[in-house]
Design a binder for these strands. Structure first.
Lengths: 215, 215
DNA sequence: ACCTTAGTTAAACGATCGTTTTAAATAAGG
DNA sequence: CCTTATTTAAAACGATCGTTTAACTAAGGT
């Protein structure tokens, strides 16, 4: 049984790495089991199917990230009078760092997984996330609204998804972009630096004044 | 020969549609030839390979969009004294509309193709674009710098890619997002409305003040 | 000792993919 | 009308995929 758990874990660890590097559909079970040095059939034995393995991988990170995010949001709500967009966005930082307990490079892995999950299995991940953590997501959105009372909710909805897209895109193609940036600007950009650069960008975008609508 | 062109065109038209709906790798040649009502082998006969077909599809739009963008940028440079970020970004609007000459729903198709191209074949498309239209891209970047003299070029580089990510993500998952938005806010959001909402968001993000760096 | 159960292994299955091959049909030119 | 080149059609190829099967191993309980 101790050996069994180790096999299951070896699969998870290898799957996370390969999924985050090449995406879900581009990664075959044979690559995973080869990297994990286990038998091909053991994936279907321990997880049932590839889809179930993907969900298990995602769930492992969500189950750490989401409650931590909820905790941060609750703390922020204790002083609800002067909440800024940046405050709400900053609530995602500590939960990201907490992912290091799942895996040393947990934060990077999780972001890349998210990127692939959204671009490949569109509705799938969203349904899964909303049915399990819909309340937390809703809370997050409410705080963003609270921080931007002059922007209409529908616009904020879109801007949040623009922000999500900016982050996921930057993360998914971060390696290629960092190489280009290094070639163009001499100095190298660290992965964490990218996230730091993202925050002011999306904060300004979310809180931007809405242009007048001419009828 | 007239019939031949029609077959090649039928393949292109079907491929554009299916590629933009499901991505490049998720679309099989059998789907394309079935949709186009031509024989499976004709793709390899007329285009050589699936990869060549993908490039032909992308090139058809790039060859219209990029020169049109160059024209807009040149016009803007005639009055270089008071260029804003929004001015530079607005230069992409007319070239987008010009894609209607390629196909009625050209703009939507092109954006979705771009989204998949970036997320699936990362380096591939970038190399192709830069080697053919690198000058125009560089010009665009220079104007963005000109409009934001107080923001360092490296930061602008990243913010431009954040913007690209926001746009591509919104476009790739626009159908799903518009359905959710309709469910949450009652009214439906049009595809063009999404692009209009994007402009103020990215303009504000690009021109945002850089936070102080503490040493 | 025996049986049950969990786990592992190697091999094969059926399906789908891009591509190639072969031959038939078509159009053009002398 | 025959010849030639181009285009279409059908079939098969080889590779890869996720999944399943069946035999084998090794504990644990009775």
């Amino acid at each position: 049984m101790a050996k069994a758990l180790r096999t299951k874990d070896k699969i998870i660890i290898a799957a996370e790495k390969l999924f985050s590097e090449h995406g879900f559909e581009q990664t075959s079970l044979r690559q995973i089991t080869s990297e994990a040095e286990v038998n091909l059939a053991s994936v279907n034995y321990h997880f049932g199917s590839k889809k179930a393995l993907i969900q298990a991988v995602m769930a492992r990170y969500q189950s750490v990230f989401m409650p931590a995010l909820a905790e941060q949001l609750h703390q922020l709500q204790k002083h609800p009078e002067q909440i800024t967009t940046k405050d709400v966005l900053a609530c995602t930082m500590q939960p990201m760092i907490a992912l290091r307990h799942v895996r040393l490079d947990g934060p990077v892995i999780y972001l890349r997984l998210l990127g692939y999950a959204y671009s490949e299995i569109q509705g799938h991940l969203r349904k899964f996330t909303m049915s399990n953590y819909g309340e937390i997501v809703h809370e997050f959105f409410q705080l963003i609204q609270q921080a931007n009372p002059s922007v209409c909710p529908k616009t904020l909805f879109w801007r949040l998804h623009f922000s999500l897209g900016a982050m996921l895109f930057a993360q998914t193609s971060s390696q290629a972009l960092r190489e280009i940036a290094a070639a163009d600007f001499g100095e190298e950009t660290q992965a964490e630096e990218t996230l730091l650069k993202l925050l002011p960008f999306v904060a300004a975008g979310i809180s931007a004044a809405e242009p007048d609508v001419e009828s």
